[in-house]
Design a protein around this nucleic acid. Sequence first.
DNA 1: CAAAATAATGAAATAATTTCATTATGTACC
DNA 2: GGTACATAATGAAATTATTTCATTATTTTG
Lengths: 309, 309
Amino acid sequence: MYLELRHLRSLQAIHRTGSLARAAEHLHLTQSALSHQIKALERHFALPLYHRRHRPLRLTAAGEELLALAERLLPEVAAAEQRLRRVAEGDSGRLHITIECHSCFEWLIPTLDRYRGRWPEVEVDIRLGTHFDPLPALARGDIDLVISSDRVALPDIAFAPLFDYEAVAVLARDHPLTARERLGPEDLREQILITYPVAEERLDVFTRFLAPAGVRPAAVRQSELTAMILQLVASRRGIAVLPDWVVADYLERDYVSARPLDTAGEAGEPGLRGTVYAAVRAAEAERASVAGFIALAREALALRGSSQS
Amino acid sequence: MYLELRHLRSLQAIHRTGSLARAAEHLHLTQSALSHQIKALERHFALPLYHRRHRPLRLTAAGEELLALAERLLPEVAAAEQRLRRVAEGDSGRLHITIECHSCFEWLIPTLDRYRGRWPEVEVDIRLGTHFDPLPALARGDIDLVISSDRVALPDIAFAPLFDYEAVAVLARDHPLTARERLGPEDLREQILITYPVAEERLDVFTRFLAPAGVRPAAVRQSELTAMILQLVASRRGIAVLPDWVVADYLERDYVSARPLDTAGEAGEPGLRGTVYAAVRAAEAERASVAGFIALAREALALRGSSQS
DNA sequence: CAAAATAATGAAATAATTTCATTATGTACC
DNA sequence: GGTACATAATGAAATTATTTCATTATTTTG
C-alpha cells in the first residue's frame, strides 16, 4: 500500500507533456523531484516504468498499466473534488429540518417548495420528532435546522429570528371570559387548557404565564392538530393559548374569539410575546443553502403578515 | 490538488472499523496521526467531514461524498497493483523478438506456439527489421529479445547461449570442390557466393573466413530465403555458407553436398563454428516470461539435435 | 454522576519529499 | 564521427509533511 495519487498525476503529466522537465513545471516541481519520485515508484514495484535509453521517455508495459489507471482515476477524483467544492460553498448538501412550533407547517411547506426550486442539489427533509431533543440533535449533526421559539445559549449554535408573535387566549365566541379585554393567569384557574402534546416546561403559557403566578388550570387536554384544538375551543371544551397568526384565519371567520394575555410579571409591553428562530450550527450559518433557506422563510412570513393585515 | 489515496484509505478504514483508534491500528498508524490527517483534510476542503459530537463518528454529506469516492477508486487501485505485481514477477508483459539469424524461423515458430500456451498474458510478437540495429533497439526497449550470433560486450545486455553450430560450405552435388574434404578461403576466390541480404561485416563467412585471408569471391549474390539459396546452389549458380543444421535436411535428401571450412587462422578445432544467443536486457533476464522463453527455445533445439543425429 | 471509551491537541521526532548543483546520457546537426 | 544541445539521473542538504508521545477534552454508558 504505497501508490498515491501524486504518482498517477505525475505519470499523466509526463505523458501529456512528453518530458520530465515540462511535466515538473506543470506540477510545480523541479525536474529532479519528479525524477526521484518516479525512481522511488519503480523501486517500490521493483519494475521499470520507463525505457531509460529512449528520449522522449517511453513507458514500459508496466508503465502503460499505471498510466491507464491514472487516466481512469484522476477524472473521477477531479469530479469529486468539484462536488466537494460545491458542498463547501453551500450549493449542495443536506438540510434536515425539525420544527418545534406546531403551527409552522403553514408557511414551511410552501417555503420548502420554493427552496427546492432554488437549490435542487440540497436534500431537504422535515424530521418530525416529538421524541428527541432538537437542539442537541442539531449540535451533533442529526438534523441541520431547528425552528423553535426557545433560544438557548449553546456554543456553536446560531439563532436567526424569523418572526415575532403574540400568544393569545382562544375562547369560544360565547365564553364568559370574552367579557374581559385581557386575561390574567387567575382567569385560567377554573378552565380546561388545551395544548399541543408537549412537555409543559416547553410551553410558554406555562413557563411565562401560569407558573410565575403559581396557577394551574383545572385540567389540561392535548391535541396534535391546530384545527382540532380550535374545534375543541369552539365547542366549549376548553380554552387554548396560541400564536396570534395561527388563529387569525379563524377569527376572521368568527369561528372563535381571542383575548391577549396579561403578563404583569414581565417587563416591556404586556402580552405573551415571543420570537420564532431558525437554529443552525454556527459553522454552517454562512452557507448559501442555509442562509438561503432563512431568507426564503422570512420572505414567506413577510408576505403572510401583509396579506393578513 | 492535494487529495491523496492515503486519505481515501483512511476514510474507508474509519468507516469499516467504526472508530479512529481501530482504523489507525489497521493502517499501522497511531490514533493521533489519523486524527491529524483527517483534520488536515477538513482544513484543505474547508469542510467538516465528520459530525464531531457524535461518537461512533458520523460522516457529513461531504464525508459521504469522499467515502463513496474511496469505495469506487480503491478496488481499482488494488487491482492495478495486483496486475503490476504480476508484471514484476514476469507473468505478464510484452516479449517482442527480433531474429538476426535468418534460418531460425524453423524452431522459433513452434517455440512461440508453446510459449503462448504457457504465458497467455504475455504479448509476443516477431519484429522483423533488416533496417535497424537490433542491439541498441533492445537496449532502448523497442524490442525485448534478440536472437543473434554476435555477442557484443554491452552494458545491461545479457547473452544466453542457445546452441552451437558449424557453418559449412554448401555445394552442388557434382561441384568440383566436393572433391576436397575441407575448403579453405582460397577455394572460394573463383566462386560465386550466395548470402542472406545482410551487410558483409555481419556475416561470419566474411569476417572470420575470407577477410582474414584477404580473399574475395568472384561475385556475391543475395537471397532472403534459405530454400531459394539452396535451390541456387543445387542448380550450380554459386555456393553458400550456412549453419550445418540448416542444411541437414537437404543433405539427407541428397539435394546438395556440404564441406566444412578450414579456419586455419583461428585457435581451437578447425571449422567456422559459432554460437547463437538470446540477448535480453540484463534487468529482465530473470523474469519468468523471459527466462521461460529461453528455456523453451533450448528444449526445442535439443529435440531438433536429437532427431537429426 | 462517575468510569470507560474515544477523539483532539501541541510539541518534538521522524520520515518523506523537494531542491540545488552537478553529472550522465541521448539526440540532432554538421 | 564528433560536438552542441536537450534532457534525465544523481547525491547531499534543506525543507516539508507526517507521525508519535504525552496529555487533555469529549462523549457514551452503566
